[in-house]
Nucleic acid binder design. Structure first.
Ligand SMILES: [Mn+2]
Ligand SMILES: [Mn+2]
Ligand SMILES: [Zn+2]
Ligand SMILES: [Zn+2]
Lengths: 144, 144
DNA sequence: TTAACAATGATAATAATTTTCAATAGGATG
DNA sequence: CATCCTATTGAAAATTATTATCATTGTTAA
C-alpha cells in the first residue's frame, strides 16, 4: 500500500517486477544484500534482471520502506524501515552474531553532543563490536 | 621508531618506499584516502606504485599507527592512531565539515549496553550526522 | 491505432581495492 | 667479493559491488 502510494505520487508504474521484489523483501526479516535478494527473486522469476533489484531497492529507500546498513565489509545490506524504528547494532567479532539495540540515554546524549558544537543532529550510525558469551567461552577454552 | 620496531619484530624490511610513505602519512593531519596519499608520495618519488601505498597502509594499521575511517561513501580514509586516542565523528550533511568528538558517558553506556547482552565490548564506531550552523543559516535563507 | 515514453534486462562501465607475477634489491653466507 | 635466497616492488590484471547505457518491450492516453 505504501509502496503503491509512493509510485502513484511520483508517476511511476506499478509493475509485476516491482511487486515481486517488494514482496520478497517484506517476507524476509533479516538484513539482506541486493545480491541475496536477487537470488531469492530469481527463483520465482528467472527472467528478472539484477539491475531491477538494485533499482527497486533504491525506490524502497525513497518510499521509507527500507533502510541501508553498512557493516564496512563492502556490501550494503537493507532492513525494513516501516514499523521498525531506529536502532543500532551490536555485532560479535567472533561469529558475526548480530543484535539490534537501542539506548534512549545514548540517543539523547548524541543530540546534546551535536548541539554543543552548533550542529542539529539529523541521524547517526552506531556499531558496537565485541565478543559474545559463546565466543568468549570458546576462546578461553583455547585451541583444540 | 614504532614502525621500524614493528618491521623488525615481524622480519620485514625497512625499505625506502616504506619510509617515504610513512613520513608522508605522519606529516599530514587530516583523514586521508589511499589514493590521496599516493598522489602526495608520487610527487616525491614518481616511481612508486600505488599497490605499495595500499600495502604500507595495511602495515601501519597492524603497527597501530593508523586507523580506518569509513564514512560510507565508498572510500576508506585513514587517520593517525598513535598519540591520537579514540574519538567519534560529527559530520555536516550540508558541507561535509567534520569534527572529532568524544563523550565519556556515551562511551560508558556503550559498554553497558554490550554487557547487558552478554557481550564484552572491544570497539565501536559512531558517526553523528547533522547540519552545522552555517548550513542551517543558508538553508533558512532559502535559495537565491 | 499509434505516438510517446517509462521500465526492463543484458551488458558495459566504474571505481576502490586486491592479487598476480616477473623483475629487482639487499641482507646473509661462504 | 660472489652468490644465494627471498622479501619487496611496480605494472597490470582481477575482483567486487554498484551504476550507467541502450536497445527492446510494455503501458498509457490521445
Ligand atoms: Mn537492524
Ligand atoms: Mn578522526
Ligand atoms: Zn560470537
Ligand atoms: Zn555544514
Amino acid at each position: 500500500m505504501i509502496f503503491q502510494k509512493y509510485l502513484a505520487k511520483h508517476d511511476l508504474r506499478d509493475t509485476p517486477q516491482r511487486e515481486l521484489i517488494l514482496d520478497a523483501f517484506l517476507t524476509l526479516e533479516e538484513h539482506i544484500s541486493a545480491e541475496q535478494l536477487y537470488d531469492i527473486v530469481k527463483r520465482q522469476d528467472p527472467s528478472i534482471g539484477q539491475a531491477t533489484v538494485y533499482r527497486v531497492l533504491k525506490l524502497l529507500m525513497e518510499a521509507e520502506l527500507a533502510r541501508e546498513i553498512d557493516f564496512g565489509d563492502g556490501v550494503i545490506r537493507y532492513e525494513h524501515k516501516y514499523n521498525h524504528p531506529h536502532h543500532d547494532h551490536l555485532v560479535c567479532r567472533g561469529c558475526g552474531k548480530m543484535l539490534e539495540v537501542v539506548d534512549p540515554v545514548i540517543e539523547e546524549l548524541q543530540k546534546r553532543v551535536a548541539e554543543s558544537h552548533g550542529f542539529k543532529l539529523t541521524d547517526h550510525e552506531m556499531y558496537l563490536y565485541g565478543l559474545c558469551e559463546d565466543c568468549r567461552r570458546k576462546k578461553s577454552a583455547g585451541p583444540q
